[in-house]
Design a protein around this nucleic acid. Structure first.
Lengths: 196, 196, 196, 196
DNA sequence: CATGAATGAGCGTTCATTCAT
DNA sequence: GATGAATGAACGCTCATTCAT
């Protein structure tokens, strides 16, 4: 029962990601998502509070997976520099590999009001904390500058990567996103490193 | 006549910025903007093609002013490092000084479809070119690393600043944005500088 | 299920005929039709593409019934003169018996653009063909003149009857329409008959 | 002054006929007529009560001219049969010669509410009376049947011709309208004549 | 649990008309 | 008389959500 419930839940989410990516959030009718998922319109509301909830859930699920990948990959990495490189690589390659997801996170998810932004903030938190802990670890290990403002720095890193992904997406993905990892990381590390 | 026309045009834009900031683009009725501007609903359409056009015009006007400020401030600055610092300072202080404008550019403007994004892209272009020219000048003058990818770098800089502003905004402007200039610039310059 | 669907479909059509007859097509709001039909505004659009579609459907349904009546009545009539008389009688009596329908077909339906005219043309076709076949049969049987132009003649007949109905309607139905049958038919037959 | 007034009045009417014929009454904005006429929007209202008044005036003016042509042509015709032939010829040839006028009278003018219909009725009156007087004269001279119902007969004649013109118009004027005169008149006369 | 027909609030836009200049 | 900027009422249609089955 529970597994079947979950099944339909994910079924709807997968449909939503497809429909959102194709038409954008505001132009995606709930009925279209239902059709894509192969369920009735009303069924959607057995699994989600409302349309907005679909978008947030989508983000939560997908970002959850992403954060897991980050955590798994970082598990045996103790060097902060390597960690930054790994984070950037996953950030770029995962979104490059799933353009639909990229659309939803970079474009559609931004089409939200302040209340949703707050909700999204909650979802992004683990990723942000990951960045923070890496930065902190870098400072503690002496690899990164001691005068770094952790909270500001993680915004700079995240914002920079975010913009690169969005621009790549809007440009029509005409070039390789993952090839930008090295130069991005080099810029980051120089900005971060202690004995520059 | 022309001045009175312009007067009403700006009257509507100012009303729009207020209403958009308060309710968000999608929840701002044209009639509400008209009321705020003290004109009839139909009058809006004498000055703007449609609701979307208001948003884009708003952005164009305001960003135009901003770019002018950048250009004026950079006029006598030949040192690329100083230029970067000036850009960041203006970016932060101007948006900090006009929270409504900040809301519109950081939140509402993102609530747009791909077509609008393209239009916005045109508007942002001068600012982007400004960043690029400063980076290029920095490289040529030997202050910045020669192996910098100009196009990638300006994304990193813009994205980083953009995220800082948005986060500050969403947090409820509980801290000073302009105080973040120094640490932001320090991070940037270390990432940019040649003799690191 | 299907019958209930049809039920609501006809419910809306009957409401539309009432509202159109009372206010005219252009001054009949969809909401007024919905109210009259006892359904929500949106329900209209589950059964009709748009407002125009209501008008055309109305015409198609009602004229369909009318054509059926013509065909049933003519089934056992082989004499072309009798057929003409029967057609005129039905044309006048049916519209006299349903003033609302008459309003819609004679007045409101004419308030349509060229595209709608084409659609209407399709609906009227069976009636036109009926007239043509009667004329042709009359010619073949030797009752009607051999030099009659079938296509022109059916226009003359239809146009003449149409004008009589419209004028009766505009005049406020102050006299009996069905009493005009005999004199109309007499005029027609003299114009049609061979051994004049 | 008066002549200049009249000048602008006709200027607007000519513009209206062009615009109505091109776009249809409901899709013809007053501003478009003003532009076509080379006057300001407001000027229209110095010469016409409202948009509807333009249509009726147009009809009144043009039909007035037409009736004059009828009357001039019938001046020296004492034979009722010749008169019918002349009327039909003018009816067909005049509208064939001025397709724009035909559009307005046959299509656009019908897009009117009951109030307008009444107004139009007043305008058509002289033409109707002309038809009536010809029929009456025919009866009195013994050429036409004595048992003709004058009021009904003029409807039959007018309606028949009207339908022929409308059908020719909607068909795209692919054939000659004036060539239909002879067969139309032949049908009429057989229906009208006494010693058939 | 699932359905999908029904709901009805909500809104961008048009355009005939007015009136200060 | 002439202008044309300004007005604001009016409405077709969409679509997220509900609920009887």
């Amino acid at each position: 029962m529970t597994s079947r419930k979950k099944e339909k839940y994910h079924q709807i989410l997968e449909a939503a990601i497809t429909v959102f990516a194709e038409n954008g959030y505001h132009k995606s009718q709930v009925s279209k998502i239902a059709k894509e998922a192969g369920v009735a319109d009303g069924t959607i509301y057995l699994y989600f509070k409302n349309k907005e909830d679909i978008l947030i859930s989508l983000f939560r699920e997908k970002l959850g997976e992403l954060v897991e990948k980050f955590q798994t990959s970082l598990e045996h990495i103790t060097n902060a520099e390597d960690a930054i490189r790994t984070i950037c690589r996953i950030h770029y390659t995962e979104l490059e590999a799933d353009v639909d997801l990229a659309y939803v996170t970079q474009i559609e998810l931004r089409q939200s009001n302040m209340e949703m932004r707050v909700a999204i903030g909650q979802v992004v938190k683990p990723y942000i904390q990951l960045l923070e802990s890496v930065i902190n670890q870098g400072i503690e290990s002496g690899l990164f500058r001691a005068d770094l403002d952790t909270k500001l720095t993680r915004l700079l890193l995240f914002g920079a990567m975010d913009e690169v992904v969005t621009t790549w997406l809007i440009s029509g993905q005409k070039y390789s996103l993952s090839e930008q990892v090295d130069k991005t990381v080099e810029f980051f590390l120089k900005g971060l490193q202690a004995h520059s």
